[in-house]
Design a protein around this nucleic acid. Structure first.
Lengths: 208, 208
DNA sequence: CTATAATCACCCTGTAAGGGTGATTTTTTT
DNA sequence: AAAAAAATCACCCTTACAGGGTGATTATAG
């Protein structure tokens, strides 16, 4: 036996906010302790609400959801933030996760799944809807059609670790001149002429 | 209306393999086209099986699951690989995703969720169990207790992009000498004396 | 059997890196 | 209000690295 999960909702659309409040509030084991239309409205009251989980929208007047996450985490370090949003921009997802979000759902997620996800974050899991997970998974995957050879890719990875020719040569048991030669070929293939540009191009095209 | 989803199972434990075969084979809309005890057994036959989705175990005799992924993707580029494994090592997950896996479930996943996930990968989603997602999410999150100041973190990030003092100075509208000064402080705080070591230490401790 | 990959060599110039030392100003914290 | 931390810039120094050019040898694979 354990007490209800305390949930706070921060969402500017009143209809959606009330919808979630009703959905969660009427579910056994869950309690909606508060609901706000913006983070700025919520800011001073959150400490008193002591929610276990905050359902947070990203698009909001005033402080947006992503910027709100670190502020929330500062006030309530034990609190889990579950993002619930319509947007699926890769950069937005990464920023949200980097800022401390514990889960990420899109608004088309079924009610039952939302309820389930609230419990999952509370239990230390990391719920993600499949469309979000797809973007995250893809972000890990390298481009299969790289113009670079294996050795070149390997060397570019070491360059991206900030290593210089000498260090790379030592790592790979080859001559620094050979490293240099590979680097030149990498530059030609990527059409760049500096380490920074090579790293940038390589990351953009997921070559490393 | 659409034809059945063609599923191949590669799993060395016979009991589990038969369990999955039965589970999936008896579900409407799914068809188990083949089941193998190892990738090496499957290798030559996969092309003929033409599965839409392969359920793949990681721990197997011969070629392990992670090394098998790129080989599978080479033979069947359109085929989705769904990993189903007991291990939850961070490095293993990242390697699997980098090698081209489309989803990642742990073996304690409920039958219904497995069936659902097969359809999700087929439809281009990226199913992940919550424990896996948690590790992935955590990999995005920075350490909140960084010894570095904001400016120092910012500069270290630019160093990790391969930029030199002059470029960093231009980016931040400050003097190269100031950049240098920050870099020296970063080195002292991280107890290193080269860019490569600073990047390494920072990444290890998730400071950037 | 020929392209690609991987290896090494030596020319060259400019600049970047890192150590030392110190100072000023702004911001934050106590 | 005082003290601490962060951010800014300056000039000393030496060594090493970066990147362009040009060319050659030896696998390896298609």
């Amino acid at each position: 036996m354990s007490r209800d999960i305390r949930v706070t909702i921060i969402e500017d659309d009143e209809t959606i906010r009330q919808g979630y409040s009703f959905l969660i509030g009427t579910t056994d084991g869950y309690e909606v302790v508060s609901a706000y239309g913006s983070y700025d409205d919520a800011a001073k009251k959150l400490a008193g609400d002591k929610p276990d989980v905050i359902l947070l929208d990203i698009e909001m007047p005033g402080t947006n959801g992503i910027d709100a996450i670190p502020k929330i985490k500062k006030q309530l370090p034990q609190c889990f933030v579950l993002l619930l949003t319509v947007y699926e921009s890769e950069q937005q997802i990464f920023n949200a996760l980097a800022n401390g979000a514990s889960g990420y759902l899109t608004k088309n997620t079924a009610s039952a799944r939302i309820i389930e996800s609230i419990r999952e974050v509370k239990d230390g899991g990391g719920p993600m809807s499949v469309n979000i997970a797809k973007l995250v998974i893809r972000s890990f995957q390298k481009n299969q059609e790289s113009p670079l050879s294996k050795r070149e890719t390997q060397i570019l990875e070491l360059i991206a670790e900030g290593k210089n020719r000498t260090q790379i040569a030592r790592d790979l048991f080859i001559d620094p001149e050979t490293v240099r030669s590979h680097v030149k070929n990498i530059y030609v293939k990527l059409d760049v002429n500096s380490r920074a540009d090579a790293i940038k191009t390589a990351r953009k095209n997921k070559l490393i």
